[in-house]
Design a protein around this nucleic acid. Structure first.
Lengths: 229, 229
DNA sequence: CGGATCTTTGAGCAGAATCAAGACCTGTGG
DNA sequence: CCACAGGTCTTGATTCTGCTCAAAGATCCG
């Protein structure tokens, strides 16, 4: 499947801009790559080379926490872009690891800019994506600080569901590739708290949870929790 | 003082790229503007028009919090850029208000892109700046969640001191233009907690605090607090 | 000077972390 | 196919950080 046929992610839209004008062989700048569970796309501090678009599977981003273990700073689902912010200082600012087997499209940015043509539209698209990312962080991460455990988890589940449903997959049933510890680290909670809140949500009939599969039972209920509890 | 003489902020570096090649009258695209205390640069949702570089004074960014009052999501000091992420969706995602009297340089991006020439280097610079912003948010905001009140305030003070010292101003004495409530909102704490922690820091000899002026007494001590307490 | 706002300080309480077991999955090898 | 070992997940009891409510003290500004 060609990347520009999927129409899912911003990456493919960039390629629609880049490919026709540049006339570069797609085999070099853009390649499909499959990843095994636990495999790392790149490590923190590594030299920036490529931007990745998730085609299938899921990934987590981590930064090294000083004294402690690593901290999860984001999750990536099919359609998400990985690594754009590495363009700034030529180094990735976090590590990315696959939560399950999957595949990505790899765009070799370095070689693309070396080719020197038709980067105008590509750059415009990159600016848009980066701006969106900044805006997202302003609204999303900043709001995490003020929220309690219930709100954080409800918002987290809703965000996941929204992302998958926007991308075409059925939004009611979610596959959680990450562990409770990952969720806890990302949300700034303790493992035990995540567990407790999820089971309570289940008892309240908001979600159903079996192993790694989460089913949304009450979209509205979760939104109410996320807004005020 | 011409903007590209100050050499302080990323904005001026962009203008060095843009001005020579584009040959546009600098009076139109770039203008100096003074702001009064409390004045708003732009409001949330407003149509994106310009990017601002802080020349003097300080500013705060706010987003409307649903039921409650506004939430502070950032502070800007001389040398900082304001509003870049508005380029993404053509609307500003937050409001910006002056904490004290000051001045900014205004770059009318819309008109610059309309002029249609030499945007290549400018865009490249914008990508760099946006990437830097994303990386900053990943490392900074994400870390706020896991930290306790002491750590948040120590890190906040250190970040302010680092920013002002990097920009040339003496780093030991800081002018805090923002109120305790602003700091509390930004750090996700209660006003009272900010007050308590600051006075404790003072008793411990880490800082000295009089009115709006904060003096760093023990840089190392603060770093120790920020790392683990 | 006086009113309004902001800041400090105190007391009590609630939410979440921590500590500590126990239950459950998962993959492995017999 | 089953049993076992490792990890992950749940659940309980306790502790502690930081919020809330309340009131007094500063500071600012007309």
């Amino acid at each position: 499947m060609a990347c520009r046929e999927c129409g899912l992610d911003p990456m493919c839209q960039v390629l629609e801009y880049a490919e026709p004008g540049s006339g570069v062989p797609s085999g070099i700048l853009l390649r499909r790559q499959s990843v095994k569970k636990g495999e790392m796309l790149f490590g923190v501090g590594q030299l920036f080379k490529s931007v990745y678009a998730v085609k299938s599977g899921s990934f987590k981003a981590m930064v090294p926490d000083l004294n402690r273990q690593e901290r999860v700073v984001g999750f990536y689902l099919p359609g998400d872009l990985i690594g754009i912010e590495g363009m700034a200082n030529q180094h990735y600012s976090y590590s990315v690891r696959a939560l399950e087997a999957g595949s990505v499209c790899v765009l070799d940015i370095g070689r693309l800019t070396e080719s020197g043509r038709s980067t105008e539209a590509l750059q415009r698209a990159l600016i848009d994506m980066l701006g969106r990312e900044v805006a997202l962080y302003h609204s999303q991460t900043a709001s995490l600080i003020r929220q309690n455990a219930d709100q954080r988890l409800a918002a987290f589940i809703l965000a996941l569901a929204l992302r998958t449903s926007l991308r075409g997959l059925g939004g009611d049933r979610l596959y959680l590739g990450m562990s409770r510890s990952d969720m806890a680290s990302y949300l700034g909670l303790a493992r035990e708290t995540v567990s407790r809140v999820l089971t309570r949500f289940q008892k309240e009939g908001l979600i159903q949870l079996r192993n790694q599969t989460l089913t949304l039972l009450s979209w509205d209920g979760l939104q109410q929790v996320a807004a005020s509890r």
